[in-house]
Amino acid sequence: QVALSRTQVCGILREELFQGDAFHQSDTHIFIIMGASGDLAKKKIYPTIWWLFRDGLLPENTFIVGYARSRLTVADIRKQSEPFFKATPEEKLKLEDFFARNSYVAGQYDDAASYQRLNSHMNALHLGSQANRLFYLALPPTVYEAVTKNIHESCMSQIGWNRIIVEKPFGRDLQSSDRLSNHISSLFREDQIYRIDHYLGKEMVQNLMVLRFANRIFGPIWNRDNIACVILTFKEPFGTEGRGGYFDEFGIIRDVMQNHLLQMLCLVAMEKPASTNSDDVRDEKVKVLKCISEVQANNVVLGQYVGNPDGEGEATKGYLDDPTVPRGSTTATFAAVVLYVENERWDGVPFILRCGKALNERKAEVRLQFHDVAGDIFHQQCKRNELVIRVQPNEAVYTKMMTKKPGMFFNPEESELDLTYGNRYKNVKLPDAYERLILDVFCGSQMHFVRSDELREAWRIFTPLLHQIELEKPKPIPYIYGSRGPTEADELMKRVGFQYEGTYKWVNPHKL
């Protein structure tokens, strides 16, 4: 086992960053958080920038500027975001240094004079007029057009580079997404736009490419001749908990499936790229999406959770019991969808996408189930092999396979070949997804960000279904809070070829 401390991990990262040409360590950078008073800024962006600063992973002359409508001070920003920093008493001095680099400007999102004030403020910072500028839009999409237009007109660096990070949702359907994309691309070049999907920053999602293309053993079996089906799962054990009003506007397909799960599907299904260059990788992902037809209604199961009468606390409440959810809402909190990649490698292999709230566990994984062994000599005792990439929690890679049961006879039983990170790298604290992705933006690497043509294809696949749901308002199937979801989803999976045995229990190697 390799035991690495946080300091050692960050030392390795620093070495990698400083050796590259793309990370300008000594240049002045300004990180501007648009929507600095909001939840995302408070819980994710400010803490992430602090962790990067604490670990010495930001360029040395980096300033952080918050911008929002609320009249706040840096002290206010500190008060609301610091509880999420997880700072230790030993880091007190470092924390003071961090907040000394912070400033805040209040202004409207659609007022040109406010942006001119913001620009004057940035120019007044040390070497601010020639600094590289990175704008993070932690804002609702309704203000994107006004904000990007004003940034472009008043706040661009004339000497350094300018980059803009856009948070999902990128529209509600193909038409609104196209409108937003066309607007942003009329102001910024594609190499300046970073559409963030934080799932692409997760260690195991990034590991998929290495697993596939750096190991000879997987190449020959990664196709329709050997793989019976692919299941991509995202499960949350909690409901909307008072935030249903926002969720109800989008629903589970827009929230998770059309982005996170579809991105994971691309990494499983794509061909080997010409290189690890950002556009070479994204070219292959677009090719996969172009091979997927629009979702067919007979390959869809929609569910909505109801309270568990035997549960406790939140578990007793259904989705419609959330006071922020519109009365009688038919918005799905669970969806199972089957897609097919219609190309030579994957023809006929079902890709089953499942996601839901208020389920029995927290889990995100990719599961490849292989065909049955031909010419069975073990009297149907063999179960199908599976390769599982567990994204969260407890990152893991393992192969479910058959071995001989101890004893006199040739009785096979299920076991696993474990390729888990935790076994080799004991207690290594890896940077989280937002840390990686923000560092990628500083480096100018777009590999783990969504390109406009990729986004367009993703919406093309799901828009007809979303429009049909909005028009017909089908009643989702009720499922109990804390269950596996509607049984109809299991029946759909069985119908397209997935075999669920229920006889195997994964042993978490992190707890051995």
Rank of each mutant, 00 (worst) to 15 (best):
Val256Thr: 09
Met257Asn: 05
Leu261Lys: 05
Gln263Arg: 00
Cys266Thr: 15
Leu267Ser: 08
Leu267Gln: 09
Met270Asp: 01
Lys272Ala: 10
Ala274Thr: 14
Ala274Tyr: 13
Ser275Leu: 05
Thr276Met: 06
Ser278Pro: 13
Val281Asn: 04
Arg282Ala: 02
Arg282Thr: 05
Arg282Met: 00
Asp283Glu: 07
Lys285Glu: 01
Lys287Met: 08
Val288Asn: 03
Leu289Lys: 01
Leu289Tyr: 07
Leu289Cys: 12
Lys290Leu: 05
Lys290Ser: 14
Ser293Phe: 07
Ser293Thr: 15
Glu294Gly: 13
Gln304Asn: 04
Tyr305Asp: 02
Glu312Cys: 13
Glu312Met: 13
Glu314Pro: 11
Glu314His: 12
Ala315Glu: 13
Lys317Gly: 14
Lys317Cys: 13
Tyr319Asn: 04
Tyr319Asp: 00
Tyr319Glu: 03
Thr324His: 08
Thr324Leu: 12
Thr324Lys: 09
Thr324Tyr: 09
Arg327His: 14
Thr330Pro: 12
Thr331Cys: 10
Leu339Trp: 03
Asn343Ala: 07
Arg345Thr: 15
Trp346Leu: 00
Trp346Asp: 01
Val349Ala: 00
Val349Arg: 01
Pro350Val: 02
Phe351Cys: 04
Ile352Phe: 07
Ile352Met: 07
Leu353Glu: 01
Arg354Met: 01
Cys355His: 01
Cys355Asn: 05
Gly356His: 05
Leu359Pro: 03
Asn360Tyr: 03
Glu361Asn: 08
Lys363Leu: 06
Ala364Arg: 02
Glu365Ile: 06
Arg367Met: 00
Arg367Ser: 03
Gln369Gly: 06
Ile377Cys: 11
Ile377Val: 12
Phe378Ile: 07
His379Glu: 14
His379Lys: 14
Gln381Phe: 10
Lys383Leu: 13
Glu386Ile: 00
Val388Leu: 06
Val391Cys: 03
Asn394Val: 06
Ala396Gln: 00
Tyr398Ala: 01
Lys400Trp: 02
Lys400Asp: 03
Phe410Trp: 15
Asn411Asp: 14
Ser415Trp: 03
Ser415Pro: 02
Glu416Tyr: 06
Asp418Ile: 01
Thr420Asn: 09
Asn427Thr: 13
Pro431Arg: 06
Tyr434Ile: 02
Tyr434His: 09
Glu435Leu: 08
Leu437Pro: 03
Leu439Met: 12
Val441Trp: 01
Gln446Phe: 01
His448Val: 01
His448Ile: 01
His448Cys: 05
His448Phe: 03
Phe449Lys: 02
Val450Leu: 07
Val450Asn: 03
Glu454Pro: 05
Glu457Pro: 01
Glu457Ile: 07
Glu457Phe: 08
Arg460Asp: 05
Thr463Asn: 11
Pro464Ile: 07
Leu465Arg: 06
His467Glu: 09
Ile469Asn: 10
Leu471Glu: 15
Glu472His: 14
Pro474His: 15
Lys475Arg: 15
Ile477Cys: 08
Pro478Ala: 11
Pro478Glu: 12
Tyr479Asn: 01
Arg484Met: 00
Gly485Trp: 03
Thr487Pro: 15
Met493Trp: 09
Gly502Lys: 10
Thr503Met: 14
Thr503Ile: 10
Lys505Trp: 11
Val507Ala: 15
Val507Leu: 11
